[in-house]
Write a protein that binds this DNA or RNA. Structure first.
Length: 265
DNA sequence: ACATTAATAT
DNA sequence: TATATTAATG
């Protein structure tokens, strides 16, 4: 269980809401309610339109609020699944349907709330909590609990939200995870071999690979796995040895197993 | 301060 | 599982 931050500043004014609803009356109403709560609303009348906005990334959002009575080409569940797959945004479902089994279905699929119509103003007012929950629980700005003093001396000043400032919440796009294709992996292997396994550190491997957009962390992560796999084969080889070797010889054995085919299976 | 990496999270 | 991120360590 993570410790909770004792103090996190959170501006819920101007949180960016992506509103999706193909009913004009309903979308107008919700839009007005949201705006009067000082949310910044972008309204879409069709889910595919909403997905385009999310994907092109030109506009950042803090939360998605969506009706789910869509046209037949995309139902609410599909939309929800797609948004959850591609983003980390909290998704609030709004619907006239109030059957418990339907609601459970949406919650199970990852909706952070299901609001049966009519949606009351006081509920809209509290939507910011879904953004706050995500940010606070996922936050690493944990304030020292022991002395109860906010540790603002270090660079971890409390970050504010989008709000009036131009700062955007970082929304990790799940699609943006690096995929180590055979091609990319081969470049990696070449770079590592060129350096020699014992000198291969992320920064140098990154430089040698010379792949735009590739980050040191990507390489570091991949290098860990690569070494682990080499280590496994080395350990297996070691089983055939009678005695126990010194720790430093483990490094040498990476070299012994360099022709291993264990990786990429 | 910065880089690496073991450990952990998603 | 593959990849990302955190946190300890140098």
């Amino acid at each position: 269980m993570k410790p909770y931050p004792l103090q996190v500043s959170f501006n819920f004014h101007g949180l960016k809401v992506l509103l999706v609803d193909n009913n004009h009356t309903s979308i107008f109403l919700l839009s007005k309610m949201l705006q009067s709560c000082h949310y910044q609303v972008t309204a879409c009348t069709h889910p595919t339109q909403a997905l385009m906005l999310l994907r092109n990334g030109e506009m950042k959002f803090d939360i998605v609020v969506t009706e789910v009575n869509f046209s037949p080409d995309m139902n609410g569940i599909m939309f929800l699944e797609t948004v959850k797959r591609e983003t980390d945004l909290p998704v609030v479902i709004v619907s006239a349907e109030d059957r418990i089994d339907i609601m459970i279905k949406y919650i199970t699929k990852g909706a952070c709330a299901y609001l049966p119509k009519p949606v009351r103003m006081e509920v809209v007012q509290l939507l910011w909590q879904h953004v706050a929950r995500k940010e606070i629980l996922g936050s690493k700005q944990v304030i020292n609990v022991e002395d109860g003093e906010p540790n603002s001396s270090q660079s971890g000043e409390n970050k504010e939200f989008c709000g009036s400032s131009d700062e955007q919440i970082k929304v990790r796009d799940k699609k943006n995870r690096l995929v180590w294709t055979d091609d990319l992996h081969q470049k990696f292997v070449d770079a590592v071999n060129q350096l020699g396994i014992r000198n291969a550190v992320p920064k140098k491997v990154l430089e040698l690979m010379n792949v735009p957009g590739l980050r040191r962390g990507n390489v570091a992560s991949h290098l860990q796995k690569y070494r682990l796999n080499l280590g496994k084969t080395a350990a297996q080889m070691q089983e055939s040895f009678t005695g126990r070797d010194t720790g430093s010889s483990m490094i040498e054995q990476y070299g012994v197993s360099k022709n291993s085919t264990a990786y990429g299976s």
